[in-house]
Simulated scan of single mutants.
Amino acid sequence: MLHTIRKPHAPVLAILLGLSSAVTGAAELDPKAISIKLPEQINWVANPSGSETAVLVGDPAKPGLYVVLNKWKAHHNSKPHSHPNDRFITVISGTWWVGTGSDYNPDDLKPVPAGSFVTHYGNEIHYDGAKDEDTILQIVGIGPATSVPAPAK
């Protein structure tokens, strides 16, 4: 016996059939064209400074382009230092706190909210970190990304 679908249910059935064919018929992405790392696939490494780093592209210890994520844990800061090359930083989440000069004074840190873009100029002294919340930065630069402590006064 052949059943007919009543008209009120026909649009729902058509949508469901369309969704199921869209899910099963999706083409695989070509790994030569695109690479995706989901958050759980990003490898974070703890640093003695109270931050964590995840290298996304390149190797910051070697010459060439690198892209890293840096997670400052709450209540951790760097001491005054510089880097030999410019670094380009986007605040992904949280509030990043920054200061300049060789006199370390956490009370002088200025807030940089999520969504902001900052340039750290090569060989210029700065310090930074997080206050009451974890902060994630994306840092792009040319390696090697050494950190040089500011001269003691």
Rank of each mutant, 00 (worst) to 15 (best):
H81P: 06
D59Y: 01
W72Q: 07
K62R: 11
P80V: 13
P39R: 04
K79D: 11
V23P: 01
V67H: 03
V67L: 08
I42N: 03
Y66A: 04
A46C: 00
S49C: 03
A54D: 06
N47L: 12
K79Q: 12
N70C: 03
S78K: 01
S21R: 06
S20A: 12
S20H: 11
L65Q: 07
A54S: 12
L19W: 10
I34S: 04
N85C: 02
I36V: 15
A26T: 11
K71P: 09
K37Y: 11
W44P: 09
V57P: 00
S20R: 05
W44H: 03
W72K: 00
P48M: 01
G64I: 15
V67G: 01
P31I: 13
D59K: 00
H83F: 08
G25P: 04
A61M: 09
G18E: 15
L29H: 07
K32F: 12
N85L: 11
S21I: 15
I42H: 02
K73A: 10
L38D: 02
V68E: 11
A22K: 00
P39Y: 10
L65M: 11
A61I: 05
A54G: 11
P48I: 05
L19G: 03
I34G: 03
L19H: 06
E52V: 05
G25F: 13
W44A: 08
K37L: 15
T24N: 07
A74D: 09
S82G: 05
N47T: 13
N77E: 12
G58T: 11
V45I: 13
L69F: 15
A46F: 02
V57R: 02
A46N: 05
S35H: 12
W44T: 10
H76F: 14
T53K: 02
P84A: 06
S82E: 05
K79I: 14
K32V: 14
S51V: 02
H81C: 04
L65C: 06
E40P: 00
A26N: 07
L69E: 12
N70W: 00
A74W: 06
V57L: 11
P60W: 07
A46I: 11
S78Y: 10
L16H: 07
G58S: 09
A22E: 14
S21M: 14
T24A: 14
S82H: 07
A61L: 07
G50M: 04
A26I: 13
K32A: 15
